[in-house]
Design a protein around this nucleic acid. Sequence first.
DNA 1: CCACATCTGTAGCGAACACTACAGATATCT
DNA 2: AGATATCTGTAGTGTTCGCTACAGATGTGG
Lengths: 199, 199
Amino acid sequence: MGMGRPRAFDADAALDRAMDVFWRHGYEGTTIAQLTEAMSINPPSLYAAFGSKEGLLKAALDRYTEKRDAWMDKVLNAQTAHEVAERFLMEHADAQTDPANPPGCLLVQGGLACGTGSENVPFELAARRTRTEDQLRERFVRAKAEHDLGENVDPATLARYLSAVTSGMCVMASSGATRETLREIAAVSLKAFEEQTKG
Amino acid sequence: MGMGRPRAFDADAALDRAMDVFWRHGYEGTTIAQLTEAMSINPPSLYAAFGSKEGLLKAALDRYTEKRDAWMDKVLNAQTAHEVAERFLMEHADAQTDPANPPGCLLVQGGLACGTGSENVPFELAARRTRTEDQLRERFVRAKAEHDLGENVDPATLARYLSAVTSGMCVMASSGATRETLREIAAVSLKAFEEQTKG
DNA sequence: CCACATCTGTAGCGAACACTACAGATATCT
DNA sequence: AGATATCTGTAGTGTTCGCTACAGATGTGG
């Protein structure tokens, strides 16, 4: 028995193209026609490989999360909690205004509110955002154990705060905020972080 | 010559219904069928009154802005810049988790990234968000003139920071953040504000 | 009460949507 | 080489989308 005709396109490269389209137009604003054109494949190939439009989004999110994890490792490996916060904020300001990508972040621009039948999409995006928040919180728990953060500091609050600020930066990036503007916001936020860790 | 059959529905009440649907499902996730059902009218009435789906959104946004302006007046009329920031943040935390409305804010949940043909929607929402930011900035300019804020404080930075935080709160509210969580974030943000106004 | 202007409800328009049937192509395994 | 399994491209499928033609209803002005 044979193994069948092999796939003629690179799945990861195609996912990168799909990611860009979802990122730029949101899940519901993206059409299969746009996706197949960007991925340079025909609909049957898309459906054979990813099952459905939502399946393709999840595959793209998986790939996005992979890249993000590598990036988060760099952030989390900073020596101090303060430096973690600084890197997190500043790298976000840069990433969200990187001309290589659409503005903002796929996990926000992908869709906060969707129509009937796509309720799962905002939920899926939220789960990935929560993951980042969890990583930050765990890092701050460690910092607390290492006496890098004081006893009366709440790691969950810090993580939620940073997560909120970077989500807000996504919103501003989507409406044209420059890298400098986002860095300014990041700098102010960092002061709140400092103040919070003193208390 | 006669003046024609009068409209049988209340336009403002209908707009409130439409606002809720756009808010909950986003512009692109909302269908005309959902709108007409929520508004208790038929499509021809909708199109006679508002022109198009996008026209209806703009009308709903105008009504939203009206209410928001009344609300912002209360915020901006606070005695000090610090109290303006506090009210702005805390009222946002409450409004975004008010069970009378969908979570978050129409100006964010309405749609950050839209499909081809609806590019105008994110732009329109962003313009309304900028309006709030402008109101804050002007208030801080005044505070500076009144020596309520120091000479080396940048009103634009403060306004942008508060705008970013509340936008981030919208994202968190859309994924189920509680009122207490948002208030916590608001409290941390307020510390950044205080710190920023000292410098 | 009549002419007119506008609204309302039914019913359905063309277009675009996500998705797929099918036939031919291309690999593997024996 | 032959059988088989999977992919690819063409050309659609049924459904839903935003929107509207039309006829009847309901008000105003003369």
